[in-house]
Write a protein that binds this DNA or RNA. Sequence first.
DNA 1: CGGATTGTAG
Length: 481
Amino acid sequence: MVATATNLLSRPSVTQSPSSLSLSSSPSTSSLGYQALLRAGPRLKPLRQVHAYLIVTGAYRSRSLLTKLAALACTAKSIAYTRKLCLFIPDPDSYLFNTLIRISSKVGFQYDAVIFFNPCAQLGALELGSWVHDYVIDHGFEVNVNLGTALINMYSRCGNLRKAREVFDEMRYKNVVAWTAIISGYGIHGCGEEAVELYNLMKDYGTLPNEITFVTLLSACAHAGMVNEGREIYESIRRDYGLVPGTAHHVCMVDLLGRAGLLNKAFDFIEEVKRPGPAIWTAILGACKMHKNYDLAVHAAEKLLALEPENPGHYVMLSNVYALAGKMDRVETVRNMMKKRRLRKHVGYSIIEIDHKTCLFSMGDKSHPETNEIYRYLDDLMRKISEAGYVPAQESVLHELEEEEREYALRYHSEKLAIAFGLLKVKDGSSIRIVKNLRMCEDCHLAIKFISTVANREIIVRDKLRFHHFKDGVCSCGDYW
DNA sequence: CGGATTGTAG
């Protein structure tokens, strides 16, 4: 049975006998006891063993234990097993829902899980989350501060900021965590001004910010180009709140300065940090690449490779930098280094939900039954946007050309395929929603802006870190990401 | 009766 948002927790129409569960446990399970197994973490096998143990000992109707098991199954990203366990829970209560909402908002929107069990299951985090929200309202559960915060988080990370704000406004009691969640939401969606406004409002209400509030705020400023505001906030951490800025804050500051093009200031900042870790160098490398400062980029990349030689992302970054600088021999060197160390670049994919089915595309993907139509439509689309003035972004072309992917080059990046499919299928003019596992490339970002105009459609892309709302040729990120 | 919600870079 396919797990769907609506049947995840619905009660079984026919009472299921506990013995219908597969008992994959070894005989030694019972002597271990379930406590040790519960501590085994989010893996399914021990869960099944505990469940079997409960059945054997006659404790299979214990609500608290089953809730704990369901929570672990959810953490393990098995919707099917979560559902199965929920069916056994007598008289499910708000405690169960609080737990499941919390976990699914944290883990459920990571679409990697989709590949894991069923790429075509109806598993949108927004759908699931909205459904649980409705259920909670229908059953009169109080939206307390914890539940409310989980909802804010879920809605903003699923792309529905308005709904997140609605939940926030309706909360009677808001603590610093709730405020931080909504501030973060505005930050992720590129609304730095609003994030800072909310922060000021929070202070007016007499709520004290904590370290995480500052991480969130600085990130919001960094992505909105609000350098002065960010600096002032950073200063205030120690001055006004007696807190000590940590690594995360340092990273945000380097990002804030670097993104704004103040590369030397960012490097000066790093100088003052005691032992700069990989995160700081990653931030500055991103900024150097963004502003095409190759010397500084190479400097940062060398630090990074020394600290984390096993991270493929760093090599990809460095090779991109060399490609941008036109130093193709160096690109080759980096590639060979990767080969020698047996590192593989992460494979990118994009997901779109159509007719309650989740469809997954990777670059140059031809596995979809309607592949021909999709490619024909996409080619047509690319021709139209070229006529409208689109010129492929140089950087990505260079990178792809040395990637053994000449054939498909940029034209068939996963997000473009998913969008073409979306436009083909969703005819009524409603927005197209895409979820990507990596960050978007420059070229796709540019192309989608044109597509939003040519196809007269709103396109919302959630990449690994943030949201991009494309409409009428512009993106909500203001090209600052 | 339990459990605890917010997070930087890529």
